[in-house]
Amino acid sequence: MYAGTAKFPVRKGKNYLLRIVNAAVYNHLFFMVASHNLTVVAVDTSYTKPYITDILVLSSGQIADVLLTANQAKAKYYMAAKVYTTHSEANIDNTTTTAILSYVGSKSSTTPILPEYNDTATVTNFREASDVAILQAYHFHIDDVYTTDFPSNPPIEYNYNGDVDKTLWVPISGTRVKVNEYNATVQVVFEGTNIFQADKPSNAYSRL
């Protein structure tokens, strides 16, 4: 039944980082994993604000890094991709390419229901979720893109030039901004994140 189909074994409860690449030359692709959500953490190798989706829409050559949690019942879940286009179905390859996410010890299988090849609404919803810039969110009052609690001073004092306590090795994830008055002078201190070798900070001044 599964001859020739790529299989990726996973264990229930584990998290996996997947890099999805659209290797098609001309086509956009829908991509889904049956019964699983995906958390997008990077697009084209650049980190992005994480967001959860059940479908990816990738343009030709585009790359998406996503986190997948194996949190479903033990089974074989199909990963599937198909073309998105606004052209007539007669002029495209409307087949579906698949691989299998196989929970260790599973027997049954589940297949995702992909959108129709010309489902522009799904593409639009995905783009809106993934492409909201910070300034766009600020001007149009879009929620859940950033927070305004960026600290004016380091919230925790430690030896910034080395010998960092292990409790500070893991950064806190977040997209935080600091709103400054027009024409204000701001000093920004850039500090390296090397925890094994001391780095000297760099200073920059800017007038807004």
Score class of each variant (00 low, 15 high):
47 Y>M: 04
47 Y>G: 04
48 T>C: 15
50 P>W: 12
50 P>K: 10
51 Y>A: 09
53 T>R: 07
53 T>H: 07
54 D>A: 10
55 I>T: 07
55 I>W: 00
56 L>R: 02
57 V>Q: 01
59 S>M: 05
60 S>F: 01
60 S>K: 14
61 G>R: 11
62 Q>R: 15
62 Q>T: 06
63 I>H: 14
66 V>M: 06
66 V>D: 07
68 L>C: 10
68 L>E: 05
69 T>Y: 04
69 T>R: 13
70 A>D: 12
71 N>K: 09
71 N>H: 05
71 N>F: 06
72 Q>W: 00
73 A>M: 11
76 K>C: 04
77 Y>I: 01
78 Y>P: 03
78 Y>I: 02
81 A>L: 02
82 K>A: 01
83 V>C: 09
84 Y>R: 04
85 T>R: 10
87 H>G: 10
89 E>C: 03
91 N>Y: 10
91 N>T: 14
91 N>F: 11
92 I>R: 07
92 I>N: 13
92 I>T: 09
93 D>K: 09
94 N>E: 03
94 N>R: 04
96 T>Y: 01
98 T>V: 03
101 L>E: 01
101 L>S: 05
101 L>D: 02
102 S>Q: 09
104 V>H: 06
105 G>T: 05
106 S>D: 05
106 S>C: 02
107 K>I: 00
109 S>P: 03
109 S>N: 13
109 S>F: 01
111 T>A: 03
112 P>W: 01
113 I>R: 00
114 L>W: 02
114 L>E: 01
115 P>S: 05
116 E>W: 01
117 Y>G: 01
119 D>G: 02
120 T>G: 02
120 T>K: 12
121 A>R: 07
122 T>I: 04
123 V>Q: 03
124 T>L: 05
124 T>N: 04
125 N>D: 13
125 N>Q: 10
126 F>K: 03
126 F>E: 04
127 R>C: 07
128 E>V: 09
129 A>Q: 15
129 A>M: 13
129 A>N: 12
130 S>I: 04
131 D>A: 14
133 A>H: 02
133 A>V: 05
134 I>S: 09
135 L>Q: 00
138 Y>P: 02
139 H>L: 15
139 H>R: 14
139 H>E: 08
140 F>Y: 11
141 H>L: 00
142 I>Y: 03
143 D>L: 00
144 D>Q: 13
144 D>H: 14
144 D>L: 00
144 D>F: 00
146 Y>K: 07
146 Y>R: 06
147 T>W: 04
148 T>I: 00
149 D>H: 08
150 F>W: 08
151 P>I: 10
151 P>D: 09
152 S>K: 08
153 N>Q: 10
154 P>H: 04
155 P>K: 12
155 P>S: 13
157 E>S: 14
159 N>K: 10
160 Y>A: 12
161 N>S: 13
161 N>T: 12
162 G>M: 14
164 V>H: 08
166 K>V: 05
166 K>R: 15
168 L>S: 09
168 L>C: 06
169 W>T: 11
169 W>M: 13
170 V>W: 03
171 P>M: 07
171 P>E: 11
172 I>L: 12
173 S>V: 00
175 T>Q: 09
176 R>G: 06
177 V>D: 09
178 K>H: 11
178 K>F: 07
178 K>R: 15
179 V>W: 05
181 E>Y: 13
182 Y>K: 14
184 A>P: 01
